[in-house]
Simulated assay, not measured.
Amino acid sequence: MSQIDRLVEYVGENRWEMLTDLAFAIAWVTIVSVLFDVVDGPQWAYYLFMFSGVLAYFLLYGMSEAAIERE
């Protein structure tokens, strides 16, 4: 099996998860960008909010995986 075939298979199996991840990232960056355009906060706080999006994603992902395992 070639690399391309493996990539196509992986994307086919994980299509909805990848779209959900992309939607979360786009929504988070949009919300933080709009918020900091309105508030005109400091640059370090902007980066802190962006990094907290990474933490929020993994927390959300971990909680959903734990909920699925309990069922």
Score class of each variant (00 low, 15 high):
Met1Pro: 07
Asp5Cys: 08
Ile31Leu: 12
Asp5Arg: 13
Ile4Gln: 05
Val54Tyr: 07
Ile68Ser: 01
Leu7Tyr: 11
Phe36Trp: 10
Tyr46Asp: 01
Leu48Gln: 14
Gln43Lys: 12
Thr20Trp: 03
Val54Trp: 06
Val11Ala: 09
Met63Ala: 12
Gly53His: 03
Val32Ile: 06
Ile68Leu: 01
Pro42Asn: 09
Gly12Glu: 04
Ser52Tyr: 13
Met18Phe: 11
Ser64Tyr: 05
Val11Tyr: 03
Met18Glu: 08
Leu7Glu: 02
Leu7Ile: 10
Tyr61Asp: 07
Arg15Ile: 07
Val8Ile: 08
Ala25Gln: 06
Val38Cys: 06
Met63Glu: 10
Leu55Arg: 01
Leu19Arg: 11
Leu55Gly: 10
Gly53Ile: 01
Asp21Met: 13
Trp16Val: 11
Pro42Glu: 08
Phe58Trp: 09
Tyr46Cys: 00
Glu9Ser: 08
Thr30Gly: 09
Ile26Lys: 06
Asp5Val: 02
Trp28Gly: 03
Phe24His: 00
Pro42Trp: 07
Phe51Arg: 03
Trp16His: 10
Leu55Val: 15
Asp37Tyr: 12
Met50Thr: 12
Ile26Pro: 01
Asp40Glu: 15
Val32Arg: 00
Tyr61Trp: 02
Tyr47Phe: 07
Met63Lys: 10
Phe49Tyr: 09
Ala25Ser: 12
Ser2Trp: 10
Val38Ile: 15
Tyr46Trp: 12
Glu65Thr: 14
Arg15Met: 09
Ile4Asp: 09
Thr20Pro: 00
Glu13Asn: 11
Met50Arg: 09
Arg70Met: 14
Ser64Gln: 15
Ile26Gln: 03
Glu17Trp: 08
Met63Ile: 15
Arg6Trp: 08
Trp28Pro: 02
Leu55Ala: 15
Leu48Thr: 15
Leu7Val: 02
Ala66Glu: 13
Pro42Lys: 11
Gly62Leu: 04
Phe58Asn: 06
Glu17Val: 00
Thr30Gln: 01
Asp21Gln: 07
Glu17Lys: 05
Val8Gln: 11
Glu9Ile: 04
Asp21Val: 12
Val29Asp: 04
Trp16Gln: 14
Asp37Arg: 10
Gly12Val: 05
Gly53Asn: 07
Tyr46Arg: 09
Asp21Trp: 05
Trp16Asn: 15
Trp44Gln: 14
Ala56Pro: 11
Leu22Ile: 13
Val39Trp: 14
Ser52Gly: 11
Ala45Ile: 13
Ala66Gln: 14
Asp40His: 13
Tyr61Pro: 03
Ala66Met: 14
Glu17Met: 02
Asp21Tyr: 11
Ser52Leu: 15
Trp44Leu: 03
Ile4Ala: 11
Thr20His: 06
Ile4Met: 02
Val38Glu: 12
Phe24Leu: 11
Leu59Gln: 00
Phe36Pro: 01
Ser64Asn: 07
Ser64Pro: 00
Gly53Gln: 01
Gly53Ala: 01
Glu9Thr: 10
Glu17Gln: 06
Leu7Lys: 03
Ala66Cys: 04
Val34Thr: 04
Ala25Trp: 10
Ser33Asp: 02
Asp37Cys: 07
Gly62Ile: 05
Leu60Asp: 04
Tyr57Val: 06
Glu71His: 02
Ile26Cys: 11
Tyr57Trp: 11
Tyr46Glu: 02
Ser33Thr: 10
Ile4Arg: 08
